[in-house]
């Protein structure tokens, strides 16, 4: 219970993201993510620019369970052009799920998840797709996918504030709200990225990524 409270405090205090899941060789990334379904925090290290390993924790509010996982992101392919970049990733994790909700009295089970992610961006346009299938025993078993797209109303040089106006559409077949749309604003400067939005269900989305 103490661990759970500690985890929630940490997560709530820093609220998260999921952009560029692999950093430069030797680089660390800290990210937090909060949407209508879950809080999560993810810290990873990139031995090379083509994969990262880290710790991923998430707490699903409505179902009241938490997943803690050793997480690996693999950059399978990158397409670099003079004014654009495209990426294809595989993201996977293995760990445990814990719940004391209802019948799950202090139950812990094995949790695995995997998914793909692809994005393409210029300095003015951004498009991304991502999915994930999770199998966490009897406690959690779901599939989610989302698309995210947006544009930059102005183009700024490195080190200045970049602003993006975006839309994220989440599809969760098992949820009551199968489709959730979230308009959001992304602010980006140097090693920090921030996102904030409100979904059509009235839920806040707050994301943060820091590279170091």
């Amino acid at each position: 219970m103490i661990f759970r409270i500690f985890l929630l405090l940490v997560i709530s205090a820093t609220i998260q993201v999921d952009a560029r899941p692999v950093s430069y060789p030797g680089g660390w990334t800290f990210s937090t993510f909060n949407d209508g379904d879950r809080y999560s925090v993810f810290t990873h290290y990139s031995p090379t620019a083509f994969y990262s390993i880290g710790y991923h924790a998430e707490y699903w509010r409505a179902q009241d369970y938490q997943i803690h996982a050793f997480h690996v992101n693999n950059l399978i392919k990158r397409w670099n052009a003079e004014a654009s970049q495209g990426n294809f990733y595989v993201k996977s994790g293995v760990g445990f799920v814990y719940s004391d909700e209802g019948d799950f009295d202090n139950r812990t089970e094995l949790a695995v998840y995997t998914g793909i992610a692809a994005d393409w961006e210029t300095r003015k346009v951004f498009v991304a797709y991502e999915n994930r299938i999770t199998d966490a025993g009897n406690i959690a078993d779901n599939f989610r996918q989302k698309v995210k797209f947006g544009f930059a109303p102005y183009v700024a040089e490195y080190g200045n504030w970049h602003t993006w106006l975006m839309m994220e559409i989440m599809h969760a077949p098992e949820s009551d709200d199968k489709l959730v749309a979230t308009p959001l604003v992304r602010l980006f400067k140097g090693a920090n990225l921030y996102e904030a939005g409100i979904s059509d269900q009235g839920d806040a989305l707050i994301n943060f990524v820091h590279r170091f």
Partner: peptide, 12 residues
């Protein structure tokens, strides 16, 4: 090629 955002520049 591929320098499109601050994370890219920061990495370099």
């Amino acid at each position: 090629f591929g320098l499109v955002c601050d994370f890219c520049a920061n990495a370099i």
